[in-house]
């Protein structure tokens, strides 16, 4: 039994509660990116006690609309109070808004406008190099996000500067709001595209598998002279069959019946993992 894999299902329930409480959220991508963020935060050198530590690792959620998962993970790491997030999310005057905001503990940069995170991380990695610090910089992008031209400006610069302390992860769930990513704006061979920008590229067959993600992140840490891209092949809406692989669940708000069905299945899957 992998404790993180089990925990991912508890946090999925938190995400569901946050979204239902706040009356909306990007549930599909939240669910697909859960293991990615959870695994990252289980490894990163970050804690509520050293938020200003210049040697801390950095994470920028470039696909900022999946903030509900970030809230759940940050709460799990002690940065936020999950009950407060659930009670306040999207409420009038709340700090817990639908995209990351760096007035909240643990959040480095504001995002929500797609295609910014990678370039920001290039700057963070360059600063680390200038200062001789060993921290690592991570960003998580959506696959639909890759249509933003600025992503490729950032990719070019990271390759040019050989930023081996930078690791980008793509939540490759193959769906965006209008449908299949390859129909909307095809990425074709993503591996080859990033490799052509002088990146070390790792394909993770199951991006919802904690052990596979850890192996890829280990490889990224060992990689020298190049930034690393991890293409994490995930399932949009992962966790309950009624929302899996459905573009319409990009930001669908579950009704009471759906909420109950999702909760039930999350529990079942969690229990199955516990018995592995």
């Amino acid at each position: 039994m992998n404790a993180l894999a089990v925990k991912a299902y508890d946090l999925r329930q938190d995400v569901l509660d946050i979204i239902v409480s706040g009356g909306g959220g990007h549930i599909g991508g939240d669910m697909s990116s859960m293991e990615i963020m959870l695994t990252l935060y289980s490894r990163m050198n970050v804690s509520p006690e050293k938020q200003k530590d210049p040697d801390r690792d950095r994470f920028v959620l470039s696909k900022g609309h999946c903030v509900e998962t970030l809230y759940a993970v940050l709460a799990d790491r002690g940065f936020l109070d999950i009950e407060e997030v659930k009670a306040q999310f999207s409420r009038f005057g709340s700090e817990y808004i639908g995209h990351p905001h760096n007035t909240l503990p643990g959040i480095e940069m504001n995002s929500g406008s797609l295609g910014h995170g990678l370039s920001v991380c290039v700057g963070m990695a360059l600063a680390g190099r200038m200062d001789g610090r060993d921290y690592r910089v991570y960003t998580l992008m959506g696959d639909g996000e890759l249509a933003e031209g600025s992503v490729w400006e950032g990719a070019m610069a990271a390759g040019h500067y050989r930023l081996d302390h930078l690791c980008a992860i793509i939540d490759r769930n193959h769906l965006q709001i209008s449908g299949n990513t390859e129909d909307v704006m095809g990425h074709h061979d993503l591996h080859a595209r990033f490799a052509a920008f002088d990146w070390h590229v790792i394909d993770v067959a199951d991006g919802n598998d904690v052990e596979q993600l850890n192996a890829a992140l280990d490889e990224a840490e060992r990689t020298r002279g190049k930034p690393t891209l991890i293409i994490a092949n995930t399932v949009k809406g992962k966790g309950a069959s009624l929302m899996e692989n459905k573009a319409s669940w990009h930001h669908h708000l579950p009704n009471a019946e759906e909420y109950a069905a999702i909760s039930r299945e999350l529990k079942e899957r969690k229990e199955a993992l516990e018995h592995e």
Partner: peptide, 11 residues
């Protein structure tokens, strides 16, 4: 964006 990343790290 790169300038902002640098600045967020104290530059």
């Amino acid at each position: 964006s790169i300038a902002a990343g640098l600045a967020s790290c104290g530059k």
